[in-house]
Amino acid sequence: MIKLGDKLPVFELENQHAEMFSSTTIESKAVVIYFYPKDFTPGCTAEACEFRDKYEDFKDVGAEVIGVSSDDTVSHAKFSKRHKLPFIMLSDTKGKVRKQFGVKSSLMGLLPGRETFVFDKSGSLIMRYNSIKSKNHISKALKALTNE
Rank of each mutant, 00 (worst) to 15 (best):
I2A: 04
D6H: 08
K7M: 14
L8M: 08
P9M: 12
F11D: 00
E14D: 08
Q16M: 12
H17K: 13
E19Q: 15
S22E: 05
S23G: 03
T24P: 00
T24H: 05
T24A: 08
E27Q: 14
E27W: 01
K29Y: 07
K29F: 10
A30Y: 01
A30G: 14
I33K: 01
I33C: 02
Y34F: 15
Y34V: 10
Y34I: 09
Y34M: 05
F35C: 02
F35E: 01
Y36N: 02
K38R: 15
K38D: 07
D39W: 09
F40W: 03
T41S: 15
G43D: 07
T45N: 07
T45M: 06
E47Y: 09
A48Q: 04
C49E: 04
E50R: 14
Y55P: 05
Y55Q: 06
Y55C: 09
E56W: 01
E56Y: 02
E56M: 14
D57H: 08
K59P: 02
V61G: 11
V61I: 15
G62M: 12
A63H: 03
E64I: 13
V65P: 00
V65A: 03
V65Q: 00
I66R: 02
G67W: 02
V68H: 02
S69D: 06
S69K: 12
S70Y: 13
D72H: 12
T73Y: 13
V74I: 15
V74Q: 10
V74P: 00
S75T: 15
S75C: 15
S75Y: 08
A77W: 01
A77V: 09
K78C: 14
K78E: 13
S80D: 05
S80A: 11
K81I: 02
R82I: 13
K84R: 11
K84Q: 13
L85M: 05
P86W: 04
F87K: 07
I88F: 01
M89P: 03
S91V: 09
G95P: 07
K96W: 00
V97A: 05
V97R: 13
Q100V: 14
F101P: 00
G102M: 04
V103Y: 05
V103G: 03
K104L: 15
K104S: 06
L107K: 08
L107R: 06
L111W: 13
L111P: 00
P112H: 15
G113F: 04
G113W: 06
E115I: 10
E115C: 15
T116S: 09
F117T: 01
F117Y: 01
V118N: 01
V118G: 04
S124N: 13
L125H: 04
M127R: 08
R128S: 11
Y129D: 02
S131V: 05
S131H: 09
I132G: 05
I132R: 06
S134M: 08
K135H: 07
K135E: 08
H137V: 03
H137C: 04
I138W: 02
I138R: 02
I138D: 00
S139N: 11
S139Q: 12
A141N: 04
L142N: 06
L142S: 10
L145R: 03
L145V: 05
L145D: 01
T146K: 15
N147I: 07
